[in-house]
């Protein structure tokens, strides 16, 4: 397994986690996109090392990269793409209402905390 890729996954995850714990919805969306990259890469790495593109050309399958995680990763890319766009639309709507894209505290939870303290 490639250390370079391992560090990439770790780095993307860290930055992604840092961003999604932010208060700004646009930063959270960035974080989600990065976490999506990290998971796609992790999926790809779990299939084995880099290799030739798995396209049969009559010369046999020696040296092919594992096609299975690629097929799964393709779906993952598309789904995280959809999620990112939808979150963007939500952020844009939030801006219309509050003038900003800040994520506020859960109102119900805050109320509970206030009552009980």
């Amino acid at each position: 397994m490639s250390i370079a890729l391992l560090l990439t996954v770790g780095g993307l995850t860290s930055v992604g986690l840092y961003l999604i714990t932010s208060r700004s919805l646009s930063r959270i969306i960035l974080g989600f996109a990065l976490l999506g990259h990290a998971s796609v890469l992790a999926l790809l790495m779990s299939g084995g090392p880099a290799g030739r593109a798995p396209i049969a050309d009559g010369s046999g399958s020696d040296g092919f990269a594992n096609p299975l995680p690629q097929a799964l990763a393709l779906t993952a890319i598309v789904i995280s793409f959809g999620l990112t766009l939808f979150l963007l639309a939500l952020a844009s709507r939030q801006k219309d209402h509050t003038g900003d894209d800040l994520v506020e505290d859960d109102i119900e939870d805050s109320r509970i905390a206030e009552v009980k303290q």
């Binding site: 208060r23 994520v103 505290d105 859960d106 119900e108 805050s110 509970i112 905390a113 303290q117």
Partner: peptide, 15 residues
């Protein structure tokens, strides 16, 4: 009191 501490309402802190 415990619930108030644990279930404070801040989503980033939950995450």
């Amino acid at each position: 009191r415990f619930i108030a501490v644990v279930q404070h309402g801040s989503l980033p802190v939950y995450l």
